[in-house]
């Protein structure tokens, strides 16, 4: 079972997170995209939107919680305007 962990964060933070986590043997893959967001951050460079990074991490389900919590702590989610992390399964358990 593979799980995807996604994270929306400030511009530039994605690359930093990728550099910190890419050596972790529990992580199967880590990717960074750049985009714009309308609701996550109060600082807006472009009208109603602000630049952000989207990090996608692929990890085995048994390690997902550990990596999820690690990403949360590295992003400093206990302070406002720091982004959002989510987790979703990439395939469902057969019935």
């Amino acid at each position: 079972m593979i799980t995807e962990i996604g994270a929306f964060m400030h511009k530039g933070e994605g690359l930093r997170l990728m550099n910190e986590l890419h050596g972790d043997k529990k992580i199967l893959g880590i990717y960074v995209e750049a985009g714009r967001t309308e609701d996550l951050f109060a600082f807006r460079e472009f009208g109603s939107a602000s630049e952000n990074d989207i990090v996608t991490i692929l990890v085995e389900a048994r390690h997902a919680t550990k990596i999820f919590d690690l990403v949360c702590s590295k992003m400093g989610l206990d302070s406002p305007q720091s982004g959002m992390v989510f987790q979703m399964p990439l395939h469902t358990q057969p019935a």
Partner: peptide, 12 residues
């Protein structure tokens, strides 16, 4: 649309 297991963000 995908169902999420969980989300974490800053909550006041």
């Amino acid at each position: 649309m995908n169902k999420l297991d969980r989300i974490a963000t800053y909550i006041p």
